[in-house]
Design a protein around this nucleic acid. Structure first.
Lengths: 270, 270
DNA sequence: AACAACGTTCCAATATTTGGAACATTCGGA
DNA sequence: TCCGAATGTTCCAAATATTGGAACGTTGTT
C-alpha cells in the first residue's frame, strides 16, 4: 500500500469535508505529521491541479478538478443527464422534493435532486448519503436487487436505529422488502429523519438491472395514506418512463420463451 | 513533490476520464510503469475507498467517493442548491437550455444545467469546460471581474480560434467586454460551437463579487436579434433574483455616500 | 495440452519520503 | 516601535517506502 498516496488522498478528502480554507498547520495537526510534510503534500496537490492556494492568505482549498471528475463518474454522468427531465417533470407535477439515488454498499448516494418549493424539513443533498434500509429509495433498490439473503445480510450488517421508527430487525426488513416488491413501491415512515416520509421506486437499465431509484420526500404532515397512493402512482409512472429512457423493455423476455403475464408484471421489481 | 501521490492522482484521473473499467495492465501501459506498481497503486485507491474492484473481472473503476467529494466543493454546493430553483424557472419559462457556470482560470466550468426539451445541437455537460472568452457565460464573468488589463491578458493567454467566429484579437475582446458591460448581458454568436449561440449574465454574492453566471444556449436558427433581446431580459431578471438569493443588494452603496442613479445601475456589472 | 495474457505476490536495490532545524514573514500585544 | 509567538517555507541526512523484475497461479485461447 502506497502510504504517501493514502496520505494525500486523506488530505484532500479532509480538506474538502472541512468546507473552508485550510492551512498547513491545520493539516499537520489533523494528521499528526510535521509541518514540512503537510506543506509538501499540499504543494503536490496544487501542482497536480487538485487544490488551489490563495495567494494572499496562503491557505489551501480543493479546486474544481474534484467537481469535474466527480461529474464524470459514469453512473452519475449517464443517468444524471438522461433522467433529469423525468425528475423535473415529476417535481413539477407533484410539487414535492424528488431525488435520484444509487446504491453504494449499505448506503444510498443522492445523484440529483429537485427541491420542493414548499418549505420542508426534508434534508438531503446531492452527493449526500443515507442508510439504505432506512429510506424509500434504498428499500426500493434493496428489494429489486436482493438475490440471496446472506449477501443482503452481509451488505447491511447491524441495523442501527436512526429514529424510533427505524427497522432494526433483519427479518422485519425482509418482510418490508417483500411488501415493497408486491406493492411496486417502497415507503419510508420517518425511519431516517423524524417528520420526513418518503416513497421510492427503482429504475432499470437495458439489462434489467436496478441501477437507480427515484425517490420523493414528503413531510409526514402531508403524508396521509390517501395521498401516498396517488403520489406513488405518479412516482411509478416516472420510474417507468425513466427505465424506458435507459433502454429497459417492460417485458425483457426472450421471444423464444414467453412467460405468463403475471410473471412479466412481477419482473418489474425483480 | 510527492511523486507517489502525483502518480496516484494521475491514475484516478486517468481512470475516471477513461469512462470505462480499467485493468492493471492498462494503467501500467498508460504510465509506463511495472505491472506490480500499477497493481499496488490501484489497490491503494481501493483501500482508501476511491476506487472499486469488480470481483468477477478484477477490473477497477472510480467509486462514488469522487462524486461525493466533488459535490462538496464549496462553490458548487452552496450556489448549486440555492440557485437551482431560479434556473429551473427560467428553463421552464423559455424552453431553452440553461446553465450555471463559474470561472476557473481561462475556462468556465458548468456547475448545473437544465436541458431544453427541444432537440438542440448545444453541447455542454455538468462538470464540463469551455474557453471563457468564447462563450456568453464566460464573457459575462470576464466583463464583471476584469479589474486590470494585464491580469486579464495573463489569465487568457493567446486567444485560439475554436470556430471561425471566435474572437482572437485581445483588443477586440476588450471592446466586446465593454459592450457586454453597458448592455448588461453577454452574447456568443457561434464562437465556441458552430450552430450554437448563447447569452450570459453574471450573478453576484453578498460582497458584490461576480461568483457565477447564468447562461442560455440557443440554436443559431432560433437566435434572431428580436428574440435575443426578450430572452436576455428574462435571463437578466433570473440573474438578479439569483443574486438576491445569494445576499446581493441591488445598490450596495454605503448610506453615508449615496451615488447618482446612473452609477448605481452600472454597478450591476462592475 | 500447450501457450499466452493477466492479476497477484515477493524481494532486494533504489529512490523517495520524513521530521527536525533553521530562516523569513506576519501578526498582536506591550 | 519593538519584541515574541505563530506560521509558511526551505534544506538535509536518516529512515523508510517505492520500484521493477522475476516467479507463481489462474484464466481463456489456439
Amino acid at each position: 500500500m502506497d502510504s504517501t498516496l493514502a496520505k494525500g488522498l486523506a488530505a484532500i478528502e479532509w480538506m474538502t469535508r472541512q468546507q473552508r480554507d485550510c492551512r498547513v498547520t491545520d493539516l499537520a495537526q489533523a494528521f499528526g505529521m510535521a509541518r514540512s510534510n503537510a506543506h509538501r503534500t499540499l504543494q503536490t496537490l496544487v501542482d497536480c491541479g487538485w487544490a488551489v492556494q490563495d495567494p494572499g492568505t496562503s491557505a489551501y482549498r480543493p479546486s474544481l478538478r474534484l467537481f469535474e471528475l466527480g461529474a464524470l463518474v459514469s453512473e452519475a454522468t449517464d443517468m444524471g443527464s438522461l433522467l433529469r427531465p423525468h425528475l423535473a417533470a415529476l417535481a413539477q407535477q407533484t410539487g414535492e422534493t424528488i431525488h435520484l439515488a444509487v446504491l453504494d454498499g449499505a448506503e444510498i448516494v443522492y445523484l440529483d435532486k429537485f427541491d420542493s418549493p414548499l418549505p420542508v424539513a426534508a434534508y438531503s443533498r446531492i452527493g449526500g448519503r443515507a442508510a439504505a434500509y432506512c429510506v424509500a429509495s434504498g428499500k426500493a433498490l434493496l428489494a429489486a436487487a436482493a438475490p440471496d439473503l446472506s449477501a443482503l445480510h452481509e451488505r447491511l450488517g447491524t441495523l442501527a436505529a436512526h429514529t424510533k421508527n427505524s427497522i432494526t430487525d433483519f427479518d422485519a426488513l425482509l418482510s418490508e422488502l417483500e411488501r415493497t416488491r408486491v406493492r411496486g413501491y417502497a415507503e419510508n415512515r420517518e425511519e431516517w429523519r423524524l417528520g420526513v416520509c418518503g416513497l421510492g421506486v427503482p429504475v432499470f437499465n437495458a439489462r434489467g438491472e436496478a441501477v437507480a431509484a427515484v425517490g420523493m420526500s414528503v413531510p409526514s404532515i402531508r403524508f396521509a395514506r390517501t395521498q401516498a397512493r396517488g403520489l406513488a402512482d405518479r412516482l411509478m409512472a416516472c420510474a417507468r418512463d425513466a427505465s424506458v429512457t435507459l433502454g429497459y423493455r417492460a417485458s425483457p423476455v426472450p421471444a423464444s420463451a414467453p412467460l405468463p403475464a403475471s410473471t412479466t408484471r412481477r419482473r418489474r421489481l425483480e
